[in-house]
Design a protein around this nucleic acid. Structure first.
Lengths: 239, 239
DNA sequence: GCTTGACCCTGCCCCTAGGGCAAGGCTCCA
DNA sequence: TGGAGCCTTGCCCTAGGGGCAGGGTCAAGC
């Protein structure tokens, strides 16, 4: 005859859980001894281990109750299904582990492989962290809106980045963020940018998204995503 | 800019969970649009994915909150610990899978390997299922009380079972369960049993546990674990 | 222009599978 | 005869999920 604590140790369960199973009607309330303590038999231990195994496998207690007096065939079918779910949960946890590892690593978790590579490329180019943050935000939003388009666009943008002149323009736009509104370099930069796009007007419509101005537009939804100089630049290029 | 539903889809989370994170102060409440809808930025998406990853890893939300603005070193240490826990939980689930498989198989789950083998031996000997159930209950109780002793005792009992005369006595005790109280075979069986133990009195004290009478005593705690004939038998052997 | 379905808002309450804690009673060992 | 450690019941807490009410909003099709 076991006390509730001994039974709990045997089954690898807390006494609280056992009382919970009594309340739910999963495990029959055993006889009490003279002082009101519950006294369990080996049969109770067997029942409890069944309950515990199913519960640990994530089966809701209501279903455990049904399963306890199901016929063997139904039980076997249920166990097969439960095992399958368990397999899925293990896979899920393994995925969570990977994501956890990426949480240490940096930004990669939140964007696709391609976008991550692209952002690394910007970093190597000497682009400011502020600009990279803006880019990342834009890509995250685009991925949410349309993952396929984002994938296409990032490929095209990487292609553009292969052009030294585009890279120079990109870096200058980045630097222009901190310029004053009336900086004399702004009109010249706007002109060069417009010219570059005119020279490359063979580019498809979708390519225009690579325009830093449009990228900034997309990013405008983010707080602190513009500056007086950039606003001026946008006016100059569109005017 | 994302609505709560789009953000939820992006992060693989329900809208309910996002509102829950707002209430707990994990995720900052974003600005509202003109109609009062929450409008999220890419930064919110990044924050949410962090929260989700930690929450899926089983970290309590209170701790997630602390972790979100912990310094990188503390975060790294915490992640290492969380990952370790996750590893443990995966191992636990794999164990549960094994136990689930055994749940189909039969009694093996509840007793040690040795006891399981021993019970199979009884079955092949033609022992009644009632008696096997009794034995199993006794062993489960013994394993709870003292796993090492149970292990020793089952080894000794298997040794005894190697003796054909002991096997015969065991089977007759089993059969005697259904005899009437005044069955004439009872005194003879009691005598033969006592003689057998006298002849083998070289056996150590612990061996006496192998005595079916004692096994029955241990099992008495179980409901319906005795019969008039067995009670008589116990009297005859001790008297 | 109007409707319809899908989305959003707040607030409420109940469900899970137990954990924690309290206030009190019991048992066993030194 | 203590005190430690067990047992009893009861109540509140978690991390959300689910559902309801009661109402506002958006976009697409008739």
């Amino acid at each position: 005859m076991l006390t509730i604590g001994q039974l709990a140790d045997y089954a690898g369960v807390t006494t609280k859980a056992i009382r919970h199973y009594h309340e739910r009607g999963l495990l029959a309330e055993p006889d009490r001894d003279s002082s009101g303590y519950r006294r369990y038999t080996a049969d109770d231990a067997v029942d409890l281990v069944k309950i515990r195994t199913l519960a640990h496998a994530g089966v809701p207690l209501a279903r455990v109750k049904d399963l306890l007096d199901a016929d063997p065939d139904a039980l076997a079918a249920a166990i097969a299904e439960i095992d399958h779910n368990l397999e899925g949960r293990i896979a899920q946890l393994l995925r969570t582990r990977d994501q956890l590892a990426q949480l240490r690593g940096g930004d990669r978790l939140f964007v696709s492989q391609e976008v991550g590579d692209y952002l690394d490329g910007l970093r190597q180019l000497g682009v400011s962290e502020r600009q990279i943050h803006l880019e990342r935000g834009g890509w995250i939003l685009m991925q949410t809106a349309s993952p396929e388009d984002a994938s296409l666009w990032v490929a095209e943008k990487r292609e553009l980045m292969a052009d030294p002149e585009f890279r120079a323009l990109y870096l200058e736009h980045d630097a222009a963020y901190d310029w004053t509104e009336d900086d004399p370099r702004l009109p010249a930069l706007a002109d060069r940018t417009r010219n570059w796009f005119t020279d490359h007007h063979g580019c498809s419509e979708t390519r225009r998204v690579a325009n830093p101005a449009i990228a900034r537009l997309a990013a405008r939804s983010q707080p602190g995503a513009s500056s007086p100089a950039w606003d001026r630049l946008t006016l100059l290029m569109n005017g």
